[in-house]
């Protein structure tokens, strides 16, 4: 597949166009990547596809090899692996808080002490997620902008 980048003036909308003979998984993957960079992720719920704005996602969890996006009012499955999303959404204020979970720092209402050196993040949606002791150091660094 050839890649061509064309610069346009302010009078034009920016566009990523994929010209392909067939819409394969690879093409879908590229589409999904471009959308995530633009600020949205593709998620499925009840066999329907949805475009979810990254800013609407409260947290992301990996369960039994599947990855789920949790917004305030829905749960969507995504094809991405948790480590891929960690890398992809680093600049969007998402942080790993336990082995299977990423949280949107902008969606945390408060942090409370949990049992035995761990913390609980209370989200604006009212949900509570555990911040593992092993990731507290990274959380402190992220909040300080390091």
């Amino acid at each position: 597949m050839n890649v061509r980048i064309e610069q346009v003036g302010n009078e034009h909308d920016e566009l990523v166009l994929i010209r392909c003979r067939a819409v394969t998984d690879e093409v879908r993957e590229i589409e999904s990547f471009v959308k995530s960079r633009a600020g949205s992720l593709t998620g499925t719920s009840d066999a329907k596809q949805y475009e979810i704005a990254v800013t609407d996602i409260c947290y992301i969890e990996s369960v039994d090899g599947k990855t789920f996006l949790y917004t305030g009012d829905g749960v969507y499955e995504t094809a991405y692996r948790i480590y891929e999303l960690e890398e992809l959404l680093k600049a969007k204020h998402f942080l790993r808080i336990s082995k299977p979970m990423l949280v949107n720092l902008m969606k945390i209402r408060s942090i409370q002490p949990a049992f035995n050196g761990r913390f609980t993040a209370v989200l604006h949606s009212g949900e509570k997620v555990i911040i593992s002791r092993n990731y507290v150091k990274q959380l402190k660094a992220a909040l300080k902008g390091e």
Binding site: I108, F119, L139, K140, A142, L143
Partner: peptide, 8 residues
Amino acid sequence: LNRELEAF
């Protein structure tokens, strides 16, 4: 952490 979160 809450103070730092608020500032962030």
